[in-house]
Every structure is written in structure tokens, then in C-alpha cells.
């Protein structure tokens, strides 16, 4: 499946493991002949309770997979929208432990929707890798996307996370050439997250043609589902991506709706969760409009 590894250690290609929530969800999407919608929200934005209300309603609004951002003070790969969301959450007292509590609460009412935690390494390192993994698995987390841990640093968290049964989801980018792709795809599980643009979250948009070419290239190297993100803001864009990829990831556009429903002191206005779910519903319709033949 994958070519030789040029990173230390020898385990793991990029196979979808059976019996995981992510595996089941993408298999179901395939049967339905459509792409999935991956929605990103920041844990604790604008406060823990509002964030829970938002999170709880995402599956009913049409989210197939939830990406939950772990707030970090210095998110160097994110744009202003997601950084501001993280700072709002931190200001409201959010911590990594509370993020895991949020997942636990969500799981009490939803056993099926996969949750992937996305963020940066330092808060996890500060908690301790072993303790974090035990708590994440216990809370019902399915996978991890850790932006600042490339394959070169797999010993830090990727290997122990896979050992603990979590999917390690890597980002592939336009700068990931064919020589590097096998390294990036090694030890990847659940899905591959293709970053469609060069840059940070929430800035530029991706051209559909380029995305299609990139997805084809990735498909030559892996059987894992390909989710495409960065720059998708509208149902129309989601539909275009859904024609080319296995899932569309929307983040900054959702976070922008959160910000648009706050008062001057960054407190949630009534109707915040409904507004977020409204956008997700329209994005989900977009994704479904991009329906393909079952394959």
C-alpha cells in the first residue's frame, strides 16, 4: 500500500482499520454514493456551554465528521478567524481537559459521529502524552490531527496514539511532492486531509480543477478517503469539492458565523447554535448536490 518509509520505525501503512467510527462512516458514505461533510468548530468558543450546544446539533444539521479544535495561544498554521476563536475559548477558561469533557458529554448522546481533535502539540505535551491518550480514548475521540507534528516527529505522539487505537490523520499539501507523499501517507489512518491551498486557514480559495488533480494523485498512493479543506466557504464550493473528493472540510466559515453571533463582549447571542447549524445544513445540501455515482 505505501512505499518504503524514510522515517524511523517500521510500523504501519495507510490502511483503513475495520471497526472504527471513521471507517464505518466513510464506508456508509461510499454506499450512499456521496461525499461527506467535515465540520470544524473550536472547543469552548465562545464558552463551554454554547460550544456544547453547537457541537450537539452538528450531526442533525448534516455533519458527517466533526473536527474539534483544541484551543492554543499560538496556532501558527491558522488564520485570524480560527486564532481569534481559540483566544475567545481560552479567555472563557477552556483547557485541554475541558475539551475532552466536551467530547465525553457529546458521546453520551451520540455514539456514531466520528470526532477528530485538531490542534497543536504543546498543550498535549504539557498534559503528558500517556495521560492525554488514555483520556482521549476514554472520552470517545476517534482521531488526531496535530498540525506541528510532521512524520519526522512521529515518535512523539503518532506512534503512541496509533498504539492506543486512535487514527492519526495527516495533512498533505501542494508542497508534498511524489517523493515525500509516501512518507506523509505512512502511519495515516481514518482519512487523509488534503490542504488545498498554500497558506493558512480561512484565506484563499481552492480551484476545483487543481483539487481534482491533487485528489487523483493522492488516490494513486492510498486507498484512504481524501478530505479536502482550506478555503471552502459556500455550499457551491462544497458541492464542487464533493465531486472531486471523499469529503469537504469547512472551518473558518463556521467560525465566522460564531463570531457574527456574539455581542460586544464576545458573549453568545440567542440563536448562536441555530445560526451555526443553519450554515452547516446548507453546506450539507451542497455536499449532497455534488453526489456521485456509487463506486
Amino acid at each position: 500500500m505505501t512505499a518504503t518509509l524514510s522515517v524511523n520505525g517500521a510500523d504501519g501503512g495507510s490502511a483503513q482499520r475495520a471497526g472504527t467510527r471513521l471507517g464505518r462512516r466513510f464506508a456508509a458514505l461510499k454506499r450512499e454514493g456521496r461525499a461527506g461533510l467535515v465540520t470544524f468548530v473550536t472547543a469552548g468558543d465562545p464558552d463551554p456551554d454554547s460550544a456544547f450546544e453547537i457541537l450537539k446539533g452538528l450531526p442533525a444539521a448534516g455533519a458527517d465528521v466533526i473536527e474539534l479544535g483544541m484551543p492554543f495561544s499560538d496556532p501558527m498554521a491558522d488564520g485570524p478567524a480560527i486564532q481569534a476563536a481559540g483566544l475567545r475559548a481560552l479567555k472563557a477558561g477552556m483547557t485541554l481537559r475541558k475539551t475532552l469533557d466536551l467530547v465525553r458529554r457529546f458521546r453520551e448522546g451520540d455514539a456514531d459521529t466520528p470526532i477528530v481533535l485538531m490542534g497543536y502539540y504543546n498543550p498535549i505535551y504539557a498534559m503528558g502524552v500517556d495521560r492525554f491518550l488514555a483520556e482521549a480514548v476514554g472520552a470517545g475521540v476517534d482521531g488526531l490531527i496535530i498540525v506541528d507534528l510532521p512524520p519526522e516527529e512521529d515518535a512523539e505522539l503518532c506512534l503512541p496514539a496509533r498504539e492506543a487505537g486512535l487514527d492519526w490523520i495527516r495533512l498533505a499539501t501542494p508542497t508534498t511532492d511524489d517523493a515525500r507523499l509516501p512518507v506523509v501517507l505512512s502511519r495515516t489512518g481514518g482519512f487523509v486531509y488534503y490542504v488545498a491551498i498554500m497558506g493558512i486557514t480561512g484565506t484563499r480559495s481552492a480551484a476545483a480543477v487543481e483539487v481534482e488533480k491533487a485528489v487523483q494523485r493522492l488516490k494513486r498512493h492510498t486507498d484512504l478517503p481524501i478530505a479536502v479543506g482550506f478555503g471552502i466557504r459556500t455550499p457551491e464550493q462544497a458541492a464542487e469539492i464533493a465531486r472531486a473528493a471523499d469529503a469537504a472540510v469547512v472551518g473558518s466559515a463556521i467560525v465566522d458565523v460564531v463570531r457574527g453571533n456574539l455581542d460586544e463582549e464576545n458573549r453568545a447571542k440567542p440563536g448562536l447554535a441555530a445560526a451555526v447549524h443553519g450554515l452547516v445544513r446548507s453546506l450539507a445540501e451542497g455536499v449532497r448536490a455534488g453526489r456521485r455515482q456509487p463506486r
Partner: peptide, 12 residues
């Protein structure tokens, strides 16, 4: 030390 950067930067 190490190389704790996003994948986009790794090739560079």
C-alpha cells in the same frame, strides 16, 4: 530542538 512544523513547511 527538532522540526515541529506544519507539513506545508517540511519540504522547505
Amino acid at each position: 530542538g527538532g522540526r515541529f512544523v506544519a507539513e506545508t513547511l517540511m519540504p522547505l
